[in-house]
Every structure is written in structure tokens, then in C-alpha cells.
């Protein structure tokens, strides 16, 4: 099937882990009204906020190259949490899309 996402503005955003928290809240996931996780909050002082490029309303397509398409909420959240926790990398690469 063709992807409507591919027609949207996407951006690759690198978030350096320069704080103890990532500091985003996400909603949605497969089998919900919001099929891809959407950023609903960015907390001041978190790594995401410090990065300055993530915005509320963006949907997250990939995390370190892992597609979130078809992942339910809990699994998508786990993938993001693992990406932040791992010491193998000092950053997380998010592929995000601007909607509307």
C-alpha cells in the first residue's frame, strides 16, 4: 500500500542525551485513532527540549532507524525508552513528520 506519510514533510532529528530525562510525552500507536505516536508534550530541561528541534504535534516515524509503523502504543514507548537508556549511543535519531 502507498504511504500518505511519504508525502509529508519529514525531518531527521538527533537528540543528544545531555539530560537525565528525554522529556517527551507521546500518544497513540497502532490500533488507535492516532496510528503513529505523536508528541504531545516536551518538558523543559529534558534532552528533547535541549535539542530544540522536536515539536509538539510531530509524529514519530522511526527511532534509530526502527520503524514505529504498526507498533502499538506500549511497544513504541518501549522502543523510545530503550533508545534513551542504552549506553551504546549518546544520542537518539528521530525521523519525525509534520502534520497538517
Amino acid at each position: 500500500t502507498s504511504s500518505p506519510i511519504s508525502a509529508l514533510n519529514t525531518a531527521l532529528v538527533r537528540v543528544v542525551k545531555n539530560s537525565n530525562t528525554l522529556g517527551i510525552a507521546i500518544e497513540g500507536g497502532a490500533n488507535t485513532r492516532q496510528p503513529l505516536p505523536r508528541i504531545v508534550t516536551i518538558q523543559k530541561g529534558g534532552s528533547a527540549h535541549n535539542c530544540g528541534q522536536l515539536k509538539v504535534g510531530q509524529v514519530i516515524l522511526e527511532v534509530n532507524g526502527i520503524s514505529l509503523r504498526g507498533q502499538e502504543h506500549e511497544e513504541a514507548a518501549r522502543i523510545i525508552a530503550e533508545a534513551f537508556k542504552t549506553k551504546e549511543k549518546d544520542h537518539i535519531d528521530f525521523l519525525v513528520a509534520e502534520l497538517g
Partner: peptide, 15 residues
């Protein structure tokens, strides 16, 4: 058979 009309609401997780 009942057809589900609405999807479940999204959860929100703070990361």
C-alpha cells in the same frame, strides 16, 4: 455481529 464504530482512545506515556 457488532461492528466497532470507534477506536480505543490513545494512551499517553511520558518518556
Amino acid at each position: 455481529r457488532e461492528k466497532r464504530l470507534t477506536l480505543p482512545p490513545s494512551e499517553i506515556t511520558l518518556l
